[in-house]
Nucleic acid binder design. Structure first.
Lengths: 110, 110
DNA sequence: TGACAAGATAACTGCATGGTTATGTAGTAA
DNA sequence: TTACTACATAACCATGCAGTTATCTTGTCA
């Protein structure tokens, strides 16, 4: 039985690709990491990352549109939060894979 | 202790982003899915996917460059294979998350 | 040698996208 | 109302990148 993605429709495949692409941007990864602990306002995120507020808003829009972030308004502030914490497991997987390959490559060279 | 990616250098973050971006392309996801069972030659992959050989080669180059695929030459043929099968766990996670959110959204509407 | 087949690569085109600046749109407070 | 703050969005620019066609390069076989 297809434990893993065997046959996917073009539509589903597009959605999956969209998510990966959303996570394939350093600034957006930084945003996700900042939101790992708790929800944050836009201005809070702008204060942490050294870029314009417009840029942050656009990245947040991308992450929200593909279902990675949740949005909550409260007065003047807008709070963003991680929609599905599993994304961090994915980050860990990628990190682990990279480190592993890196060490293997070092062994081959040494 | 940082079980998950807490503080990452710009370089590492770039590598992680690069991997996600590599997986954020429908055609490349198709390639990975085709390679899930066994290694395949380029012409084999070209025969399965309806696009040019040049295009396939370029996508294979992207996937190989970021460590997702392994390359093996044998005579005239070049075989590509999955370098780290964990990527399929990641695909499953994304698929699961998408389906879950989709069903939740359906519940909210119904 | 030459002919051919499998892949890689170069050059090009069009579209997507990250970043900026400037402006618009709530929501709050006087 | 006016003024201010937090955020979103529009317009624009430069770069990146998927796809194409055409051209290498490499290996096999006559």
């Amino acid at each position: 039985m297809p434990k893993s993605s065997k046959v996917l429709s073009d539509a589903t495949l597009g959605l999956v690709a969209q998510r990966f692409r959303a996570m394939g941007e350093p600034m957006r990864l930084r945003l996700l990491m900042l939101l790992q602990e708790n929800e944050r306002t836009v201005s809070d995120l702008v204060a942490q990352l050294h870029t314009s507020q417009a840029n942050i808003s656009k990245h947040l829009q991308v992450l929200t549109a593909c279902g990675l972030l949740a949005r909550r308004k409260h007065g003047l502030n807008v709070f963003y939060a991680i929609a599905d914490p599993r994304i961090f497991d994915m980050c860990d997987m990628v990190c682990g894979s990279i480190k592993q390959q890196h060490s293997e490559r070092a062994k081959h060279l040494g």
